[in-house]
Design a protein around this nucleic acid. Structure first.
Lengths: 347, 347
DNA sequence: CTGAAAGCGCTAACAA
DNA sequence: TTGTTAGCGCTTTCAG
C-alpha cells in the first residue's frame, strides 16, 4: 500500500535483482517466470511477490540468445495492401498468435532482389521460420539458395522439391468456375486477365482449367475470348476489355483472373450498357473485400484462406520441430462464393 | 576454387571462427562486419575473405543483446485486412524498411485486452518502439500504463499528454468534404454512418465537421439526415440507409463515415434506382482500394497515408533517440480524391 | 588501427 | 526442489 515507488519503470530490472530480493537463485526465479512445474508453492509466492514489487519482465532478446528460439515468424509477401494478401496476412497473423508466434512482415514489393534476400539470409537468426509467397524468383533459385531457416512457400510460383508448399488447385478451381457458369446457361465465356509477360504461374493454370472445362463440356472455345492485358492494374484491365468489346468480341460471361480484373469488368460492362448478370455474368477470383462490397456483389472463386494459414503453420512447425524430409505439397480447399454477378437473373 | 565444401550451411559459424581463420581478433572482424571506417584495407580484405569462405552471417539476436537495439518496430492495429489499415501498413512497412527497421504486426482485433497488452508490456525488449492505433482503450488508460518503450499513437481515439500522436484533422476534413458537395450544388446532404455506441472518436469529429460546414453555409441541417447504423459492417449500413429511404428521407448527397459505408450507399442507391452522381452524390472517407475500384469510382476524403507513416516514424525516432518531452501532436494533410460519385454530371 | 576481456540477461547442465 | 556455473554470439571500453 505504501508503494510510493510504483511508477518506477521496469527498465533495468533483471532476473538477478528479483533473485536477490526474493532470496533465491536466478534459476528459481527463471523457473517461476516460465511456469516450471516443480516449484514449491511458497517459493513461487515469494518470488512472485518480488517480481511484482520490482515490476520485473523478462528480456526477450536475452532469452532468445540463450534458447535459440525467437518465437517469431516472417511473412514475406509482395504487397500488404493488395486485398488478397491483406486478408491472407490477417489469417496468418491470427493463426500465428494462436500458436504463440509473432509475425514480422516482409514486403517484397514484387522486387526480385527483395525476394532473393528473403530466401538467402535476410531473416537469418531473426525468425524461427518463414512463410513466403514468391512471385519473381523461380523454383530452381529457391531450391539452390535454401536457407537454414525452415520455409514454407505459398502460391503457384515455385515448387522446389526441397521446400514445403501450400496452394489451392488452380486448375480444378478454374474448371469448377467454368462449369458453374456453364450450368447457368452461359455459352460464350471470356477469360479475362491473361497478363502479358506475367511472371507468375497462376494465370496459366487458371487459363488451363478454363480450357479444360470448355473442352470437356464441348462449349465454345474461341481464342478471341481470351482477353490479354498489359499489366495487373484495373486500368490495364479496363483498357483491354474495352478494346475487346469495341472489336466486336461477344460473350455472356467473364471469368476473371482475379477480383481486380473483375472490378475492371464491372466498370467496362457498366459503361457499355450491359447488365450484370442478365446480359453478362462475372466471376472473380480470391473472394476479397472488393467482391463482397461491390455493386452488384461479385461472385468469386474463394480459396480457403484460413486453411492456407493453418496448413502453412502446420508444415512450418514440423520443420521447426526438426522434420527434415522432402518438400511436401498441400492442396487446400476452395469454394465458389456465389453472389450477385452470377445469379441467373436479377438480384 | 577447390571449394568442395561450398554447400556447408552457415549455421554455427561465429565471429570467433572468422577471427581465427583470418588471424585477427574478434573486434577486428566485428569492425569489418559493421563497416567501421578505421580498418586498414588489407585487414578488411583478409577478414572479408574469411567471412566469405565460412559463409558467416552475424547473429542478430546476439547483436541485440549486446547493443540493446532490436531494429524492430511494432505496428499495433485493429485488423490487417481492413482496407484502410492494410494500406496504412503498407506505407509504414515501406517507410520502416527505408529507415532500416523491421515491422512486427500486432493485430488487436478490436479487443480491449489485446490493446492493453500492447501498451503494457507485450513488446517489452522486443522492439525499439511501437506505432499504435487504439480503438478501445481510452486516453487515461494509455497515459497511466505508459510503457518504457517509445510509442506513437495514430487516429483520434486517445491523446494523452505523455505520448506522441499523428492524425488528420477530422473536423476540417469533414468540413472540406461538405463544402465540396455544397459547391457542386447539393442541398440536402446526409451524414451516413453514425454508428451507435461507436467506441471511437472519429465519427463524432466527422459529424461535427459536417454540422459546422452546413451551419456556416446556411444549408439544410435536418436530424433525419444523420443516418445511424448498428455497426461498422456494410450490411449494417445497407439496412440503415434502406430504412431511411423507406422512411422518406430525401437527400441529394451522402457523406459517408468511411469507404465501407460508401459501398453500402452505392448498393442501396442502385437498388432504389437512384443514379450516382446524377441524383445523389456519394463521398467516402479513407480513399481505399474500394474507392478506386468501385463502379462508379468513389470520391473520397484521402488522408495522406504516406505522410502519416513518415510522421509517425519521425516522432518515434526522436523518442528512440532519447527525446523525452511532452507528447507532440501532428496533423497530417488530407485531400479529396475526386472520382465519379461526385462529378456534377455523368462520366 | 587492433587486441583482450568484461559484459548484455537469460537458460540449462550438472550438482547439491 | 534449488543453487552454481557456464555459456548463447556479439559489442565495447580500455589498453597497446
Amino acid at each position: 500500500m505504501s508503494d510510493m515507488e510504483s511508477g518506477r519503470p521496469g527498465r533495468g530490472v533483471r532476473l538477478e535483482d528479483v533473485a536477490q530480493l526474493a532470496g533465491v537463485s536466478m534459476k528459481t526465479v527463471s523457473n517461476v517466470v516460465r511456469d516450471y512445474p516443480h516449484v514449491s508453492a511458497k517459493t513461487r509466492e515469494k518470488v512472485q511477490a518480488a517480481i511484482d514489487e520490482l515490476g520485473y519482465r523478462p528480456n526477450l532478446t536475452a532469452r532468445r540468445l540463450a534458447t535459440g528460439r525467437t518465437g517469431m515468424l516472417a511473412l514475406a509477401i509482395p504487397e500488404l495492401d493488395q486485398p488478397y494478401f491483406a486478408e491472407l496476412s490477417r489469417h496468418i497473423g491470427e493463426e500465428a498468435t494462436r500458436r504463440g508466434y509473432r509475425i514480422i512482415i516482409e514486403q517484397t514489393l514484387n522486387d526480385i532482389e527483395a525476394e532473393r534476400a528473403v530466401i538467402r539470409d535476410r531473416e537469418e537468426g531473426l525468425v524461427d521460420g518463414v512463410i513466403f509467397q514468391p512471385v519473381r524468383v523461380d523454383t530452381m533459385e529457391i531450391a539452390r539458395l535454401r536457407p537454414d531457416t525452415p520455409v514454407v512457400l505459398l502460391g503457384e510460383g515455385a515448387r522446389p522439391l526441397s521446400a514445403d508448399h501450400v496452394m489451392i488447385d488452380n486448375v480444378a478451381a478454374a474448371r469448377g468456375g467454368i462449369d458453374y457458369l456453364l450450368a447457368q446457361g452461359r455459352t460464350r465465356i471470356a477469360f479475362f486477365g491473361m497478363v502479358r509477360r506475367d511472371p507468375t504461374q497462376s494465370t496459366h493454370l487458371r487459363l488451363l482449367g478454363y480450357q479444360e472445362a470448355l473442352l470437356a463440356a464441348g462449349a465454345v472455345s474461341d481464342p478471341k475470348l481470351v482477353v490479354e492485358t498489359d499489366g495487373f492494374g484495373v486500368d490495364d484491365g479496363v483498357a483491354a476489355l474495352t478494346a475487346a468489346l469495341d472489336a466486336g468480341v461477344q460473350f455472356d460471361a467473364v471469368f476473371c483472373r482475379d477480383d481486380l480484373f473483375a472490378m475492371a469488368a464491372l466498370r467496362v460492362l457498366d459503361r457499355a450498357g450491359l447488365r450484370v448478370p442478365e446480359d453478362v455474368a462475372v466471376l472473380g477470383w480470391d473472394d476479397t473485400a472488393l467482391a463482397r462490397y461491390s455493386t452488384p456483389a461479385l461472385s468469386s472463386i474463394a480459396p480457403d484462406k484460413a486453411a492456407i494459414a493453418r496448413t502453412a503453420l502446420d508444415l512450418l512447425e514440423d520443420r521447426m520441430g526438426g522434420f527434415d524430409g522432402v518438400g511436401r505439397h498441400r492442396i487446400v480447399p476452395h469454394t465458389i462464393a456465389e453472389r450477385g454477378t452470377t445469379a441467373p437473373s436479377g438480384r
